[in-house]
Amino acid sequence: MVTDGPGVFRLINMNSVTKTYQGKNGPFNAVDKVSLKVEENEIFGLIGESGAGKSTLLRFINALESPTEGYVSVDDTDVFNLSRKQLRQHQKGIGMIFQQFNLLNNKSVRENIQLPLELHKYEKPLTVEEVLAFVGLPDKADNYPSQLSGGEKQRVGIARALITRPKILLCDEPTSALDESTTEEIVDVLKRAHEAFDMTILVVTHELNVIKRMCRRCAVLEKGRLIDIIDIAPKTRKQSYKSYHDRVLKVLKNG
C-alpha cells in the first residue's frame, strides 16, 4: 500500500504514462510521460484544452484506453496486468458518466439504470427508486431517454453510475453538452453524491467554473504533458439565480 503519512491513501497512481499514436507526420504523444496520484475520497480535476489528452488519461483508469508506456494502478492493482476476468472485476467497481450521456435509447430510464446490475452481482446496490430520488427524477422511471432533456439524461447517467455504489466515479466532460444553469444542477448532484456515498471522483472538463466549484486539486494538461497541479482556493459560494432570466439580467446588465 502506498501511503504518505497517516490517513492519506493514494488510491490512483499513474507513473510516467505515455500514449503514442502513429499520425501522418510520424508518431505523436496524446499523453506524454504523465505521473499523477489521486487520493482516496477526493474530487480531482483534469483540465486542458481539447486535444490535451485529459480524456485519454481518464480512460486509463478503467482501461477504456491503454497506455503505450507507463504504469497505472488503482488500489494497488496494476490495471494493465489483469486477465480479462480480473479486468471486468476492476471495471465493475468504477462508475463513469459521459459528455453525450451514452444512455441506451431503446431502454427505459429504469432499464438503463438497472443495466449495471444485470452485468455483475453487487453486494449492496441501491435501488432504482433511491437513485432516481437522489438525482431528482423520482417520476421518470418509465420514460425513454428521447423524452428527456439533456440535463435529465445526465441525471439518469449519474443514477446509472451510482446504483452500484462505485468507489471511483469518472466524469468525462459531464456538463459540456449542457447549458449554464443545467451545468450547475449537475455539479450540485455530483457534489451531493460525493458527500453521500464515500467515493473518489475524477472530473475531466475544459470548464474552469465546474472545476472551481467541485475540486480541491486539479491537474493542468497541455499537449499531452502535465503542466501543473493546482490547489484550488476555497470556493466562494456562487450566487444562485432564480431563473435563467435572472442570470441573463445579472450577467448582461450588471456585468
Binding site: L87, R88, H90, M96, Q100, N102, L104, N106, L119
Partner: peptide, 26 residues
C-alpha cells in the same frame, strides 16, 4: 453509436453481454 460499446466496456460487460444487452438492443 460508438458510445454504446464504450459504455458496455466501462461497465465491464463480457462480449456476450455487449452483444445481447447493448448492441442488439440498440
Amino acid at each position: 453509436p460508438r458510445g454504446v460499446t464504450e459504455t458496455a466496456h466501462s461497465m465491464g460487460a463480457s462480449r456476450l453481454q455487449l452483444v445481447w444487452k447493448f448492441l442488439f438492443v440498440e
